[in-house]
Design a protein around this nucleic acid. Structure first.
Lengths: 200, 200
DNA sequence: TTGAATTATGACTTTAAAGTCATTATAATT
DNA sequence: AATTATAATGACTTTAAAGTCATAATTCAA
C-alpha cells in the first residue's frame, strides 16, 4: 500500500476496500489493520473506536455522492430537468462505486452497526439529500409543473428509495455487467415512473 | 407467560416482543430465555441456533402479512383496484404491527443478522411478494391499463419499496399516533404516485 | 408407584472480536 | 551525536454473547 498517503486516509481507504470485499458485518479491526499493512494499535491512534471508523467511512461516501450530484443538478434550470439529471447522476455514481453500494444496500447496513448517536447523524445526512430533492419538488409545485397535493420532503424520500431499489434489483438479478446503455435506460425508467406513474 | 401455548410458539412470541422492545441488534439468547420465562438451554431444544430462531421469526412475520394481503387483493376484480387494496392492506398491516416494523425498518435488519443461507430464503420470500405484484402489473399491461414499457417485476419491487419508505418516513418524523385517516391518506398518496406520478 | 423416557435447567465453556499499553522504532531538535 | 518527542507495534486483557451438558424435574407407561 502506497506510503505517500496520510495514515488516516489509508485506513479509511482500506476499510472501504474491505467492505467491498467482505461486507460490513464481517469487518474486524484486525482485518482493517492487516489490509492497511499496519498494526492494530495504529488504527486506534487515528480512530477512537470501530464505531467512529465506520461512521467516517459512511460519511465520506455520502459526502462525495451528494456533492457530485448537487453540482451537476445545479447546472440545470427546469425542475423536471433537475430531476432527470439527479436520477441519472445518482445511478451513475452507484454504478461507478458498485461494489461498495452492493454491500451497503444488500447488507442493509445503514444503521445497524452504528451506535445511536452515529445513527442520528446518518439520518440527518440522508435528510439533507431528501430535503435537497424536496426543494426541487417544491418549486415545481409552485410553478405548476407538479401536483399540488404532494408532500415535497416525502417525495424526496420516495425518489431516493426508488433509485436504491433499482440498484438492489440489479444486484439481486445480477445483471452481467453494467453498461452505459443500461444506466441510461434505468434512469429513464425511474424518471418516467416518478413523473408519469404506471398508467397508460 | 401463559403455559397453554406450545413452547416453540412461546419462544417465537417472546422473541418478537423483545425485538419490538429493544431491536434486533440487542437481542440475545439470554434475554429471549428470560422473556419467555424459561432457561436458555430450553431455547436450544426448540431452535438449533440463534440464526434459525431469527429466521423463523421473520418467516412467520412475512407469511402472515403476505397471506393477509393476498386474500384481500383476491376479492378485487380490476387491476387498479387490486393495487389500491394491496397498498391499503399493506399499510394497515404495518400500522397494526408498527412496533415490530419500526425495528425491522429502522434497524434495516433484513439480512444483516442472518447467515448467507437464510438471507437467500428471505430474498426468495420477498420475491414471492414482488412477483405477486408483478402479475397484477402484467395483466394490467395486457389489458392496456398500464404502460407497455414497464418491467412488471421491477414495478413490484418499486411499490414494495414505496410502501416501506412511507412507513420509515412516518417513523422518523414520528407522527404522534397513527389514525384511520392517516392510513387512508397515506394509501391514497402512494396509489396516486404509482399510478399518476408527480406531474400536474 | 416405580422406573424409564422426556423435557428443562443454569452454571460453565468456548469463541471471537474489541480495545489496551509496555515496549520499540523513527523523526525532530539541540 | 545525544536527547527528547512522536508514532507504531502486537501480545495481551477484557468483554460479551453463543452454545453445551451433567444434573434435576416432570411426565408417561406398565
Amino acid at each position: 500500500m502506497a506510503e505517500n498517503i496520510d495514515k488516516y486516509e489509508l485506513i479509511l481507504l482500506s476499510s472501504r476496500k474491505l467492505i467491498e470485499e467482505i461486507g460490513f458485518s464481517a469487518l474486524t479491526m484486525d482485518k482493517v489493520a492487516q489490509k492497511a499493512g499496519i498494526a492494530k494499535g495504529t488504527v486506534y491512534l487515528y480512530f477512537k473506536d470501530k464505531n467512529e471508523l465506520l461512521e467516517k467511512v459512511l460519511e465520506q461516501g455520502f459526502e462525495r455522492m451528494f456533492e457530485r450530484i448537487k453540482s451537476k443538478v445545479n447546472t440545470q434550470k427546469g425542475h423536471v430537468e433537475k430531476l432527470r439529471v439527479l436520477i441519472a447522476e445518482n445511478i451513475n455514481h452507484i454504478y461507478e462505486n458498485r461494489y461498495f453500494f452492493k454491500t451497503i444496500f444488500l447488507d442493509e447496513v445503514n444503521v445497524v452497526f452504528l451506535k445511536k448517536k452515529s445513527q442520528e447523524s446518518f439520518n440527518l445526512r440522508r435528510k439533507r439529500y431528501t430535503d435537497f430533492i424536496g426543494e426541487i419538488i417544491k418549486s415545481g409545485i409552485e410553478s405548476d409543473e407538479f401536483r399540488h397535493d404532494l408532500n415535497p420532503t416525502k417525495v424526496g424520500y420516495m425518489l431516493v428509495s426508488l433509485i436504491k431499489t433499482n440498484a438492489i434489483y440489479n444486484f439481486l438479478n445480477n445483471k452481467p455487467e453494467f453498461t452505459e446503455e443500461m444506466i441510461k435506460s434505468d434512469s429513464e425508467e425511474i424518471f418516467n415512473l416518478l413523473i408519469y406513474g404506471i398508467r397508460h
